[in-house]
Design a binder for these strands. Structure first.
Lengths: 218, 218
DNA sequence: GCTTTATGCGAACGATCATTCTCGGTCAAT
DNA sequence: ATTGACCGAGAATGATCGTTCGCATAAAGC
């Protein structure tokens, strides 16, 4: 039997005829574990998922799994970081769009769509719940979002300076509130509740427009 | 030593000189357990908190605790229901206010304030995370909110009929989205992040106004 | 008074948990 | 061909989990 095949039954993860280096294979195995862990965490939560379940899902023994992650805590940290980084990237895309409102709505809709399609809402909810009692997770969340917030702030300030927008409240208060609203939309997975993307976008546009270009009090 | 005193050390929970009936005392004990459990769940999560921890927090042995709740699952269910019911009551108050926008903003601010002062945000986050994988919890959340949503829908429809408001999207889509946004604000506990109540209210008013009385497209 | 019922304690139970250990095998380098 | 680092399986470990049990005590009903 030629090539690698580390799975004894079911699908083989490493293609039997594609030779890979040690380091490459290691990365693939790490990815395999993370995929399995993510599945289990979504299904049972961080504390609820057992290492044996994760091993079974990954088709790997505990001894093997522990070669790649020193502890369950480390796996939680790794998955949290990957998830938060992924989210951050979606938002960074909006900073290219010269129309602030449109850029914002587009990015937010991409986020809602991604959350719906990937089925990651439970994982995100789990991360947020865990972040409120686990300092390490909390730091990961803050760090991943702080660079986005910083760039976001600059992006908005530029638009303010050129007179494109005039936020209803100071930017320091505006940004956390927008993040909070976005999280609410993400966790609730509105498309799954039957709300159409069209309606979500329509209401979001009205809202963002009002927040960034408020009506004058008459 | 007269009267009851079931705590061997530390504070006594049942006043030593106030005779209470069996049923009354039972209710007090149940409340005692629920308070302790809530504290532990906030600290460690539903799965992370152990029955021994809850026993210690309640100043009660496992044997005693199990006289009041048949299982940990039952305790989680009871605490979830109490929390959701509490939230529902806050929102029901808004249906008295004839000005929809003002009623809405007032209720939402009461919610934000309550969430901040009670320090219940972690519990709420935990409940939402658990609800995504535990059908019983999910049903509790839906039930507690469905009566509110129904009354909310009627309240809004009345306002639409009399021409007070003209929501940007259909009510069926509007309500879930508003709930989602509210949850985001609740979980994030903005006052704890330094955002003032004043700013929260200001942006909320602008937003609600825009959603319910949108500008016409020019 | 005596009996019945409700409480409470805390040791003990079996199950399951995260993690470790041992050992046989495989790869890359010599 | 031999070596040495790496990898993987799976049994084993001690800890901890949710829950139960037996027994003592106190109150309620007669």
């Amino acid at each position: 039997m030629a090539g690698f095949d580390f799975v004894m039954d079911g699908e083989s993860v490493v293609d039997a005829d594609a030779p890979v280096s040690r380091a490459e294979r290691r990365d693939l195995q790490i990815q395999r574990v993370m995929d399995a862990a993510k599945k289990c965490f979504v299904r049972s939560g961080f504390q609820g998922a057992s290492m044996h379940q994760i091993c079974a899902e990954a088709g790997m023994s505990p001894g093997a799994l522990y070669r790649y992650f020193p502890s369950k805590e480390a796996m939680i940290a790794a998955i949290t970081e990957a998830d938060r980084r992924n989210d951050a990237e979606i938002f960074t895309a909006m900073f290219e769009n010269p129309d602030v409102v449109d850029g914002f709505v587009t990015a937010a809709m991409a986020h809602v769509r991604h959350m719906h399609e990937s089925g990651n809402a439970p994982l995100f909810a789990e991360i947020r719940a865990e972040s409120m009692r686990n300092d390490a997770i909390e730091r990961t969340c803050t760090m991943a979002m702080s660079e986005v917030q910083q760039a976001f702030g600059k992006y908005l300030q530029d638009a303010v300076d050129r007179g494109d927008i005039a936020p209803a409240v100071e930017l320091d208060a505006f940004m956390p509130m927008v993040v909070a609203i976005g999280e609410g939309l993400a966790i609730n997975d509105l498309p799954a509740q039957g709300v159409t993307f069209e309606n979500i976008e329509k209401l979001m546009r009205v809202t963002v427009e009002a927040m960034l270009r408020p009506r004058r009090r008459e």
